[in-house]
Design a protein around this nucleic acid. Structure first.
Lengths: 182, 182
DNA sequence: TCCAGATATAACCGACTGGTCGTATGTACG
DNA sequence: CGTACATACGACCAGTCGGTTATATCTGGA
């Protein structure tokens, strides 16, 4: 029975999310997808090679909502924040954040993939915001928005409380609105 | 030559910060403080027992600045945010965040210690803010402020960029000021 | 000076790590 | 039917993990 590559990547993501890079083991991944550990090495060169695929899949899933292409940038921005927030609330943690903290100099490709994930997320928000407030301020505001949502995952992970995340979304939408009126 | 307990805790903190709970090994800790691994187990029951001491030390260090006791709550609040931000910028990561993500059900005492660290930090901010904006709003605002600084560590860790952290401090001070005038 | 208690040590334990190897099993095509 | 190739497998590797044990060394007080 052939196991789809995407299923392995999704299972790896779950392990990375919960246990971090160091804490996620290839043995656990193999068990979770119903394969032998050796079989994983037929599909992926090594453990590190899983990271770029995990990040790419997560980026695509997060920003896959067609509402993000709405011509009204306010609607698109609110939808983007909602997509990110609801995804994070559902999984209670951000894989990217766990990997960003967990990846070291010894796994440079993984580190680069994580940077790419966050820059990609930031730029997605930036492109939407640029329509309403101009490119210059859009980059800063997009970065700060992303980091605010990421920060809120800490309360989600350690207290199981989603209220800060919801407050962040509301505040960020209001801030963008206010900025566009200046 | 006797190694001070606090030196072990500080070395453990550095390892937890960089490699997370799973990635930090007792062997590495022993080497870093110039001891044999077995000697560590004379002072600490196990690896998990390091976490509460790491968090307690960090909490005490972070909020040890006497400026936080300034009778003017605005000055105290700004000082508290500055203390937290400069500490995070210096180390480029937050131990607490790495541990919050890295600790699991199998290490319940460590998990509780991490919760205590963040609740302690939040309450320190809350007590200061309560003077200016009342207890009800103070808790929410303190939580959101803490999480915003924590979020900014992500850019610090993955991009080496402190600008979002500095923007966060400025914005948080302004927000508190504005809230007190309503 | 001698001894007791604290401190540190080397050697070791079973379990697990990322990763490899030779072989067996499916399956698509001639 | 036969064959060739991808897929999967169990067994194995050296090294590391958290943690233990029996022994050695240091240090302070009587």
């Amino acid at each position: 029975m052939k196991v789809a590559r995407e299923d392995i990547v999704k299972a790896a993501r779950e392990l990375f999310r919960q246990y971090g890079y160091a804490g996620a083991s290839m043995q656990a991944l193999a068990t979770n997808v119903g394969l032998q550990k050796a079989s994983l090495y037929m599909r992926f060169e090594n453990k590190e090679a899983l990271v770029p695929e995990v990040m790419a899949l997560t980026l695509a899933e997060t920003f896959g909502d067609p509402a993000l292409d709405n011509p009204d940038w306010r609607i698109a921005y609110a939808a983007a924040l909602q997509c990110m927030a609801s995804g994070l609330i559902e999984s209670r943690r951000c894989v990217g954040l766990h990997l960003a903290y967990g990846v070291t100099d010894e796994t440079p490709e993984a580190r680069e993939a994580v940077r790419g994930f966050f820059l990609g997320s930031r730029n997605r928000l930036k492109d939407i915001l640029a329509v309403g407030i101009g490119v210059e301020r859009a980059e800063q505001m997009a970065t700060d928005a992303l980091l605010r949502l990421e920060g809120a995952t800490l309360w989600l992970a350690s207290m199981g409380d989603a209220a800060p995340m919801e407050r962040a979304v509301t505040a960020l939408i209001a801030e963008a609105d206010a900025a566009s009126l200046e």
